[in-house]
Design a protein around this nucleic acid. Structure first.
Lengths: 212, 212
DNA sequence: CGGGCCGTTGAAACCCGTCAAGGTATGTGG
DNA sequence: CCACATACCTTGACGGGTTTCAACGGCCCG
């Protein structure tokens, strides 16, 4: 059951042209959903981690203005939409799981809206908390850190602030002993203090209670 | 087929206690989904217009930290969740429609994230554009304006800015001839100019192509 | 008449963006 | 091995956007 598998390099889109009859399964790497503003600025609206599906829903009508790009080299499997439908029909429980991840996405998008009201330092801390928990679930983070191939500019676009300002905010968090980040490795010396500072409540991630 | 129908006054929540076995249909008025930050600030993450369903999905797991409140007097119908399931089973096409509105919510939430990267004046203009189109679809707006019972503070919480600043931004838009707002009546002397200023592209609203 | 709620305005301080420049690492080609 | 280019990180200075605090006026309603 291996599909057309390929590698997408950093700063390239995962979509190939205007094809809409496929869904994309990210198997490794680091990607994001983003939009580009008329001025040329990029705003990342969510991260795509290994195991995530993209363009699951009819791409012709939903998310036409939303693109998916690699932030680190990604291994991607192209799956024909028809194949996905077959699987859903054969195993109705899959339909339930698809509902699950969709509602999870919605809940997370809303928390990102809320996060945008916080000052930049708490915003950055909150995003790191989210990444820590999500990466732990897929076994790509230990208790207090993870490997992190993204640049400061990527994080700036995910938070909607400038890359200059994120640098300053990051150093403030560094000197406060909340974050260390170098050589593509992020660590949090005091995870509880970080979560408290970020006002982080993992409920919105909708992990607990995941069914079949 | 009339259900337990009631009226919710301004600044009150539509939910009644911790009940999770009901969905709520807003039949008239103006409501919003919101979260409250630890500091006490309220952030609105989406508006709820007449015809919208709330807590459609298992409220026990999703959206526990999300509340629904009335911004103007609302007429609400409480529907037992079991009744909704009956209807879905009896008319499978309904299931398709529920998918539709859910994906629409997701698309809109993501555009709100993008909107948060714009300066406050464009942000406000963009939100007005969204409201204009959505209210037109349900027949509660004409070509260049609508009745609007919300306060400036409500709009501030929907945009994540202070009520003082929204007042200043609003006056700037007023003097530029883009918006007039008084006596709960909003009008846009030049809709096209407003949309251009706001960088508004209605694609994300996912209205076109709505099926059965 | 008094009390909320809402809109409005001014002043000061802060957060953050932009511009500009320099520094470091990595990779490439000569 | 060196020159060069590129991408990324860092820093300072400056200006503008935004928040906060404070105060006042209008309006509706009890």
């Amino acid at each position: 059951m291996t599909f057309n598998r390929r590698t997408v390099t950093t700063r390239r889109d995962i979509t190939c042209g205007e094809v809409t009859d496929r869904v994309y399964l990210v198997m490794s790497g680091f990607a994001c959903r983003y939009k580009t503003l008329p001025g040329g600025a990029r705003r990342i609206v969510s991260f795509v981690l290994p195991g995530d599906l993209c363009y699951m829903h009819d791409a012709g009508r939903f998310g036409r203005d939303l693109r998916v790009g690699a932030l680190a080299p990604c291994s991607v499997a192209d799956i024909p939409r028809s194949r996905l439908l077959e699987v859903v029909n054969a195993f109705p429980a899959i339909s339930h799981a698809i509902w699950w991840v969709t509602l999870r996405e919605l809940s997370r998008a809303r928390e990102w809206i809320v996060n945008d009201t916080r000052p930049a330092d708490k915003r950055l801390a909150h995003l790191f908390c989210e990444l820590l928990v999500c990466l732990q679930v897929i076994g790509q983070a230990d208790a207090d850190g993870f490997e992190f191939p993204l640049t400061q500019l990527d994080m700036a676009d995910a938070l909607g602030i400038s890359h200059v300002h994120i640098n300053r905010v990051l150093q403030s968090l560094r000197t406060n002993g909340l974050i260390s980040w170098s050589n593509q490795q992020v660590a949090f010396p005091n995870v509880e203090a970080l979560k408290a500072f970020a006002e982080f409540d993992p409920a919105y991630l909708c992990f607990d209670g995941y069914g079949p």
